[in-house]
Amino acid sequence: MTWFELNQDLVWDLLGRHARLAIPAVLISVVIAIVLGRIAWRWPRVGSVVLGISSLLYSVPALPLLIVIPVILSVPLRSETNLVIALSVYGTALLAGTAADAFRSVDIRVREAAEAMGHSPTGIFWRVDLPLSLPVLLSGIRVVAVSTVSLVTIGALVGISSLGSLLTDGFQRNIREEVAIGVVGTMLLAMALDLLIVALGAVLTPWQQRTKAGATT
């Protein structure tokens, strides 16, 4: 009997927990990064300060961050909320600059024509800038998703269960297979999420697929 066969239920349970930690963190990062990126794009001076602070935050080591967040926001140290907040900080920091670039990538002629046709400023955001910034934005989201999935494992160090628990437990008890499954499982989850985002991107940007394919029917 291998370790995996004996502990299947545990692995699946941890995989589920891992995904439930990573996915909300990615979603929160995307929303906040779009807001910050929009601000940075609209007001470049404020933007350079915001982006500067966010890259500073990205350089804070994970373990201290997990200890500082409960002190500042009074959430329990071992709670999933604590980890999701920490992951969102990193995700946002990683994505905000890309979001600003994404808005800059929108063709100024298209935006001006849309404005001249009578789109309101909110209409421009939802109907023009957001969809047209998707290709650049999605490439950034893929990076954040993969990095978030691998960062989730850090939570195991303070007792927040995920596939990372297999790493800490496996190292402690010297079960190589358990460690290997922790590593491979994390990588597979990251790849699955990446594929999901790519597929979602294809659905959300049909004009790109059709124009690239050069279809003429």
Partner: peptide
């Protein structure tokens, strides 16, 4: 209320 024809490249590509 005013029609606007932009230079080339002003259509919404998406």
């Amino acid at each position: 209320s005013i029609g606007y024809v932009p230079q080339a490249g002003g259509l919404l590509p998406h």
